[in-house]
Design a protein around this nucleic acid. Structure first.
Length: 256
DNA sequence: ATGTCACCTGGTAGGTGA
């Protein structure tokens, strides 16, 4: 089974890229972030023609998430239960016995901003809900755009980024707190190329210079970790014309 | 290089968010 995450930065713009990518990488399930579409505009028909059922949770202009699956998904959840939120940032569903939780974590803007306070509150709520959710569904995968670079090796220039948004001690502590729920960073289960990033700023020729961050992650519960066969970032879509600023990340599970 | 992209309002540009 393969599960992927991709921040598409507007599905309205990126649908052709997504359809091309799915044709080349027919993953079983995929979560999307920053769809930026209200649900009435979601391209269910085009995705169905590509072999995918889709569940969306969007809003106008900003945010928006979706779950795509070749098989039926059940027990769909929108946003973090018990956390009152006007922003569409999380969708979960159970696919073939795997609880798939896709999140578009708040960006946080700057460490001294109100948006950073919201990011911390959102992460606190996520962790508390996940604690219960893992007890109900141990075969859980948490994936998406975390907007956190967990370690210095996930940052092209750790000195310049020290203390900046995505790299603050508070955000990294939140990432570690998720790991403390027995969630394992699938990417780090394997030897990876150095300077592996999942996001490159549109500015400054950042992709050409490979100046990026690894902020898109796939965390699997420890009960699934022995089943993980691969975890890779696919840089190819970032090289296309009019790309998203993020690359997809794929995990391969051997569920026997 | 404060260097781009997407989307909004409201209009032939400017603001917001990332």
């Amino acid at each position: 089974m393969q599960i992927a995450t991709w921040n598409v930065n507007s599905l309205g713009v990126r649908l052709p890229h997504l359809l091309d990518w799915l044709a080349a990488h027919p993953v079983d399930a995929l979560v999307l972030q920053e769809t930026k579409l209200t649900d009435d505009r979601f391209p269910h028909a085009e995705l169905q023609a590509a072999g995918y059922r889709s569940w969306c949770f969007g809003q106008k202009t900003y945010n928006g998430v979706a779950l795509l699956s070749r098989h039926e998904a059940v027990d769909i959840v929108h946003n973090i239960p018990g956390f009152d939120d006007e922003q569409a940032r999380l969708i979960a569903g159970t696919v073939a016995g795997v609880r798939v939780v896709g999140g578009y974590f708040p960006n946080g803007q700057a460490p001294d901003s109100d948006k950073f306070v919201y990011k911390m509150r959102w992460l606190d709520a996520l962790r508390h809900w996940l604690q219960d959710e893992i007890a109900r569904h141990p075969s859980l995968v948490l994936l998406g755009d975390f907007n956190i670079a967990p370690e210095d090796r996930d940052v092209h220039d750790p000195v310049a980024w020290a203390g900046q948004i995505h790299c603050t001690p508070e955000e990294r502590a939140q990432f570690q707190a998720l790991q403390a729920l027995s969630l394992v960073d699938a990417f780090r289960l394997f030897e990876q190329p150095p300077k592996s990033w999942s996001w490159w700023d549109y500015r400054n020729l950042a992709f050409r210079k490979n100046q990026g961050l690894r902020i898109d992650h796939i965390l699997v519960h420890a009960s699934l970790a022995p089943r993980v066969r691969a975890c890779e970032i696919d840089k190819a879509p970032r090289k296309l014309e009019r790309p998203s600023d993020h690359a997809p990340v794929v995990v391969t599970l051997d569920l026997g």
